[in-house]
Computed example of a mutant assay.
Amino acid sequence: MKTRKSIAQLVATVVLLGVSVSSFAGSCDQQQAAILLQKAAAYNEAITSSAVRYRLNPALIKAIITAESCFRNDARSNKGAAGLMQLIPATARRFGVSDRYDPAENIEGGARYLRWLLNRYGGSVPHAVAAYNAGEGWVDQYGAAVPFQETAVYTRRVFNAYNKLTGNERRPVQAKPMLVVARPVAPAAAPVKDVRWQWDEYGH
């Protein structure tokens, strides 16, 4: 009897340890905008710097972080993704990140990847967000509506947080009609001199 109980406890522990970080961040987008902004405050300088450098809305970077790690810099998933923007080792190497647990490096790499995805998909934020979760291959094949529940839930969490952070909670998010050209495009690395934000499909 004790043996069965011990085995059950061991199994429960293994299952708990196997839960990915994204599941812990799962309800983060349900929090009020003020709380999300408070969580983001410690990283605002890095977020703003990367947003300017890669012509991104800082609210979009914050929304990705909300869905990925809920602003936990020590977050690590059971798939090996790490840090605020949950970069896997291959993506970190690809975009020049040597320390995934360094907040500035992690945000820089994640933002650079996000810009690369936006360039690849003609500025469509829904396509870029889906690819950030599922990978470019699946989005090249299916568009923004990748047929995975995980990606659908992830996309919903990102845009729920995004709309809260921009004050557009009632605004629906739709992918732009587009022809996907699956070719690599180098990220724009030069800082934007005009600090008026230029948001891809979201306008000014």
Rank of each mutant, 00 (worst) to 15 (best):
Q31H: 09
T166N: 07
A134H: 08
R157A: 05
V146S: 13
A90Y: 02
Q141M: 13
R100I: 10
R112G: 04
V195P: 01
Y54F: 15
R157D: 12
A59E: 07
G96C: 10
T166A: 06
S23V: 14
T151D: 12
P184Q: 05
V15G: 14
V97P: 05
E201W: 01
G203H: 12
Y202L: 13
A131E: 10
A8R: 15
D99I: 08
Y162E: 05
A90Q: 05
E169S: 13
R170E: 15
T48R: 06
N119E: 15
V52G: 00
V192T: 06
R100M: 10
A41G: 03
G122V: 04
Q32K: 12
N73D: 09
A175Y: 11
N78M: 11
S124H: 10
T13M: 15
N168M: 01
A188T: 03
E169W: 13
K2G: 15
M1A: 15
I35A: 07
H127S: 14
V146P: 11
T155G: 12
L165H: 00
W138D: 12
E150D: 09
N57V: 04
G83R: 00
Y132P: 07
L56M: 03
S69H: 01
I88L: 07
I107T: 08
G18R: 10
A42P: 01
A130V: 06
G109Y: 04
N133A: 00
F148H: 15
A90C: 03
